[in-house]
Amino acid sequence: MERQRALGRRRARPVDRPGGARRAPRDRPGDAARLFGCPYLDRVLAAYEETAPLAGGSAGRVGVHQLFPLLVHAVLFGRGYAEQALTAARAALRPER
């Protein structure tokens, strides 16, 4: 019994992984494919939708899901990605109509 209590008190060990690598919403992979390109993107997205339809409003979240990779690329590769990140952020903050 004492051993079980001791095991329950163990501290969680830190996990070494990038901040952007976490459990992501199901629509994030499609949004990344839109951002960086994917051969046969329309077919891939149609198959994805057929297999596991996304929740309504997923089109409105594209910019939010693309923002982190764009910011990382802006830091690594420069201003062109910064402009895209700014556009994505503005679109994400714009209220839906």
Rank of each mutant, 00 (worst) to 15 (best):
A59M: 04
R13M: 03
R34M: 09
D42T: 11
G20V: 09
A59T: 05
E2W: 14
A6R: 02
A85F: 09
R17A: 15
V75P: 00
D42A: 08
D16W: 13
A91G: 04
F77H: 10
F68G: 02
R3C: 08
G19M: 12
P39K: 07
R10N: 08
A47D: 05
A21K: 09
A92D: 07
S58R: 14
A32P: 00
L7H: 10
V44C: 12
E50W: 14
H73A: 12
G37A: 04
F68N: 09
R3P: 08
R17H: 00
P53Q: 14
E2Q: 08
V75E: 08
R10F: 15
A47K: 14
A85G: 03
G60R: 09
V15G: 11
R11D: 13
G20S: 01
L76C: 13
V62T: 07
G8V: 01
R3F: 06
A88F: 11
L41H: 11
A92K: 06
L54W: 07
Q66K: 03
Y40P: 07
G20M: 13
L71F: 00
D27T: 08
A55W: 01
R90I: 08
P95L: 04
G20C: 03
L7M: 07
V15N: 02
L35K: 01
R79Y: 06
R97C: 03
L86W: 15
L7C: 15
R22Y: 15
F36R: 09
L45T: 00
V44N: 03
A6G: 04
H73F: 03
R9K: 08
P29G: 01
A24E: 08
G37E: 15
A92N: 10
T87F: 05
A55I: 06
R97P: 10
